[in-house]
Simulated scan of single mutants.
Amino acid sequence: MKKLIIPTLVVLFLGCDKEDSKTPTNSEAVVDALTEYVIVNKVFQDIGNNNGDVVLSAESTTSTAKSNSVEKTAQDVEVTISPADFVTFPKTITVNFKTGVLGKDGITRKGEITIVSTNWYRETGSIHTATFTDYYHNDYKVEGTHVVENTGENLDGDLEYNVVIQDGKITTKSGALIEYQENSTRTWIAGSETPLYIWDDEYIWEGSQTGTSSKGLDYSLTTEESLHFVLLPRSIKSGILDVDIANIKDIKINYNNSTITILGKEYPFTK
């Protein structure tokens, strides 16, 4: 979806430079920064979705377990839960994708994710802290700390989760390093009735993200209007993002009408 925005942006930013010679930021570097943001955001959103699914699956597994640790292998993914009883916390859940597992969404994951949970995923106040050991999302190596806290139901009865990503790093196949931080709220609005099937999930996302591109450009994003995510097919149905990259401070991505506004000018893009 988002990859189709980038070729258009190349032309737009080059055009902006021609109209405003005072803009010191190199157009190619700005477009690269936005392209890298698309990558890193997709990777960490995917991690959030899958980690929640893992904790929910662990709850189902341990409800009938009798040993102090459980190993469950499905589709070549090895999941270890310890302690394995239903009531003892904190609980450590290790997900080992080994040398690589191709998912239903076409993504190959390899390496390990370790999740330490203070309670089950649906329990208010539960905190789920994920770290990574030689973990790859396709060719992108992932590092950092991913913390999710269940803050309870909102007025509509939907569960809300605070998400904090600290020291997030993505290393590309070529060795380029992209840094990333996030503080956001994810509201689970659909799919909670089928907790062991992730693909019908939908959620609302709002908050802020910051980072530094591989070329040293700082960027930040905030939600002007909450984003509505669906997982299959993976897309953003609606919402508005405000984006700052280096000295360009007024980029707006509008998923409601499929337009992007740069320096006050509006252009269409294809989702």
Rank of each mutant, 00 (worst) to 15 (best):
Lys3Ile: 13
Leu4Gln: 11
Ile6Met: 05
Pro7Cys: 02
Val10Thr: 15
Val11Ser: 14
Leu12Trp: 05
Leu12Gly: 04
Thr23Tyr: 03
Pro24Val: 07
Glu28Tyr: 00
Val30Gly: 01
Val31Pro: 00
Val43Phe: 02
Gly52Pro: 01
Asp53Gln: 14
Ala58Tyr: 04
Ala58Val: 05
Thr61Ser: 09
Thr61Trp: 09
Lys66Glu: 10
Glu71Val: 15
Lys72Glu: 11
Asp76Leu: 05
Glu78Tyr: 01
Glu78Ser: 15
Val79Lys: 08
Ile81Arg: 04
Ile81Phe: 04
Val87Arg: 13
Lys91Phe: 10
Thr94Ala: 12
Val95Ile: 14
Val95Lys: 14
Gly100Pro: 09
Lys104Val: 09
Ile107Asp: 09
Thr108Cys: 01
Thr108Asp: 03
Glu112Phe: 06
Glu112Gly: 05
Ser117Asn: 06
Trp120Glu: 06
Tyr121Lys: 10
Arg122Lys: 14
Thr124Cys: 06
Ile127Thr: 14
Ala130Met: 14
Tyr135Phe: 15
Tyr136Phe: 15
Tyr136Asp: 08
His137Leu: 07
Lys141Gln: 15
Gly144Met: 04
Gly144Gln: 06
Asn150Ala: 07
Asn154Thr: 05
Leu155His: 02
Asp156Leu: 10
Asp156Arg: 04
Ile165Thr: 13
Gln166His: 08
Lys169Gly: 06
Thr171Gly: 03
Thr171Val: 09
Thr172Pro: 04
Ser174Lys: 10
Ile178His: 01
Glu179Gly: 10
Glu182Val: 13
Glu182Ala: 14
Ser184His: 11
Arg186Met: 13
Trp188Asn: 02
Gly191Ala: 05
Thr194Ala: 09
Thr194Ile: 13
Ile198Trp: 08
Ile198Glu: 08
Asp201Lys: 08
Asp201Trp: 13
Tyr203Gln: 13
Gly207Ala: 05
Gln209Arg: 11
Thr210Glu: 12
Ser213Pro: 01
Ser213Lys: 01
Lys215Asp: 02
Gly216Ala: 07
Leu217Arg: 02
Ser226Asp: 14
Leu231Asp: 02
Leu231Tyr: 08
Leu231Lys: 06
Leu231Trp: 01
Leu232Trp: 11
Ile236Arg: 03
Ile240Ser: 03
Ile240Gly: 01
Leu241Glu: 00
Val243Asn: 00
Ile245Lys: 02
Ile245Ser: 10
Ile245Thr: 05
Asp250Val: 04
Lys252Asp: 07
Thr259Cys: 13
Ile262Pro: 00
Leu263Val: 01
Lys265Gln: 10
Tyr267Phe: 15
